[in-house]
């Protein structure tokens, strides 16, 4: 007879109680139970514990746990709200950026169409002047009406720059770069705002 019951014995007894032992294991255990009263007592004890636990009363449900539409839709509502907030934030930042850019470059917000010719002329200034010089030196004059217009605008710009030296000597700064690329940047940011809006709409639909 064994002096103490091991954990392994307890596992066997517990599985035997629930009919979880293989037939051969059951036979072996039954033989031991006949020979080891302590093991048999342990089985009796475990049987009582199991019976007691199975008698443990079930609590009555204190309330209904059915979901309300709000509980069910909480996540999608929150997602849409978050998406909406995110899109709004992007749109607002875009607007602020465009306004700040306008103010810092032009002093006041001006329509894109009003500034575009200036930007185009700033971009085209140097090469056109060279071509004009070269053409004039060769005695050829302006090649077409566009060139004529460009030459006239260049002349006007030179006059303006002579009156405002700060324009002529302005170094290439971030502000200058932004002003130079303003139309592209504005189009890019506007597209971003539209995409953000579409995303918000998509989230809401979901």
């Amino acid at each position: 007879m064994k002096a103490a019951i091991t954990l392994r014995d307890y596992e066997l007894l517990s599985a035997h109680l629930d009919g979880q032992l293989a037939p051969a294991e059951t036979q072996a255990l039954l033989a031991r139970l006949d020979a080891e009263p302590q093991l048999a007592a342990a089985l009796a004890s475990l049987t009582k514990v199991r019976a007691l636990l199975r008698r443990a009363p079930q609590r009555r449900v204190p309330r209904s746990f059915m979901l309300t539409p709000q509980q069910a839709g909480q996540r999608s509502g929150l997602g849409a709200w978050s998406g909406f907030n995110f899109a709004s934030a992007i749109a607002a930042l875009t607007l602020i950026f465009v306004l700040v850019t306008d103010f810092s470059v032009n002093g006041l917000p001006t329509p894109l169409t009003a500034r575009a010719p200036e930007a185009v002329m700033m971009m085209a200034e140097a090469p056109q002047a060279e071509s004009y010089d070269a053409g004039e030196a060769a005695g050829n004059g302006p090649a077409n009406p566009v060139e004529t217009l460009a030459l006239e605008n260049t002349a006007a710009d030179e006059t303006r720059m002579a009156e405002e030296p700060s324009l002529k000597e302005a170094p290439l700064t971030l502000t200058g770069w932004v002003a130079y690329n303003a139309p592209v940047l504005e189009a890019l940011l506007a597209s971003l705002a539209v995409i953000a809006g579409l995303l918000a709409w998509h989230h809401r639909r979901r």
Binding site: A4, I5, T6, L7, D9, Y10, Q38, L39, A41, A42, A44, S45, L46, K48, V49, A51, L52, L53, R55
Partner: peptide, 24 residues
């Protein structure tokens, strides 16, 4: 659970009283 419930032996109905034998 067997060990713990032995501490509440007086609460247990007779048929569930635990002997306390064979603790591992």
């Amino acid at each position: 659970m067997q060990e713990c419930l032995q501490g509440f032996a007086e609460l247990l109905p007779d048929k569930f009283r635990l002997t306390g034998e064979g603790k591992p």
